[in-house]
Simulated scan of single mutants.
Amino acid sequence: EEKVLRLRPRWLAVAGVTAYRVAFGDKKAKIGPQTRTIGDTRIWALPNPSGLNAHWTLTTMAEEYGRLRAAAEANG
């Protein structure tokens, strides 16, 4: 959090919803934009590109990463 507050990015991307859940103590989090922020920084939980994450195909992962890109471009 200290680094995010100091660098103040518009978005923080977390690779893996499980990583997000553990880091932020949010057991019900889902892939996508989160309601929680760090200062003014929005947070997006992305699917983990690990091969163990088989229910996400390359296409569906690319779509989700594209959603973050579109949100970042739309919000400056």
Rank of each mutant, 00 (worst) to 15 (best):
L68T: 03
E73D: 15
I43G: 11
L68C: 07
I43C: 12
A54K: 13
T41R: 01
I31K: 07
P33C: 04
G32E: 02
L58M: 05
W44L: 03
P33D: 01
E64I: 11
A23W: 03
A23D: 02
Q34F: 10
A19P: 00
G66W: 11
L46A: 14
R69V: 14
G16C: 05
T59C: 00
L58I: 09
P49C: 06
T35Q: 14
R69F: 11
R42E: 09
E63G: 07
L58F: 11
A70C: 01
Y20V: 06
W56S: 10
P49E: 05
I43Q: 10
A72T: 08
K28V: 09
K3D: 12
P9M: 10
Y20R: 01
R67K: 15
G39E: 10
G51P: 09
L58V: 15
A15M: 12
D40T: 06
F24N: 04
I38G: 12
T37Q: 15
A54M: 13
N48T: 10
R67C: 01
I38D: 04
A19H: 07
E63V: 12
Q34D: 13
D40C: 00
E2M: 06
A54N: 04
A29G: 10
H55D: 07
R21D: 07
E73V: 14
R10K: 14
T35I: 11
T59F: 10
G76S: 09
A15S: 10
L7S: 06
R36F: 03
A62L: 06
G39V: 09
G25Q: 00
A23G: 02
R36V: 14
G51Y: 14
L12K: 04
T18A: 06
T35H: 05
E2P: 10
Q34P: 14
L58C: 03
E1C: 04
G32Q: 04
W56Q: 02
V4F: 02
W56T: 00
P33Y: 00
K30M: 08
A29N: 04
Y65Q: 09
L68G: 01
A45F: 05
V14I: 13
K30H: 07
A45V: 04
G76D: 08
E73I: 12
G39I: 08
T35E: 15
A70F: 11
K28T: 13
T60V: 07
A19Q: 03
N48I: 00
G25W: 01
N48C: 15
G32P: 06
N53W: 09
G39H: 12
E73N: 11
T18C: 01
R67L: 11
L5Q: 03
R6G: 01
A15L: 15
I43K: 13
N75L: 11
T41P: 06
T35S: 13
E64H: 11
V14P: 07
D26C: 02
A29V: 05
D26N: 14
G76L: 14
T57S: 15
A54Y: 13
K3W: 11
N53R: 04
M61D: 03
T18I: 01
A45Q: 05
T41S: 08
R69P: 00
R10G: 01
G51A: 12
H55C: 00
T60P: 00
A23I: 00
G32Y: 10
R42P: 00
T41I: 08
R36Q: 13
A45G: 09
T60I: 02
G16W: 01
A72L: 14
F24I: 05
P9D: 02
V14Q: 02
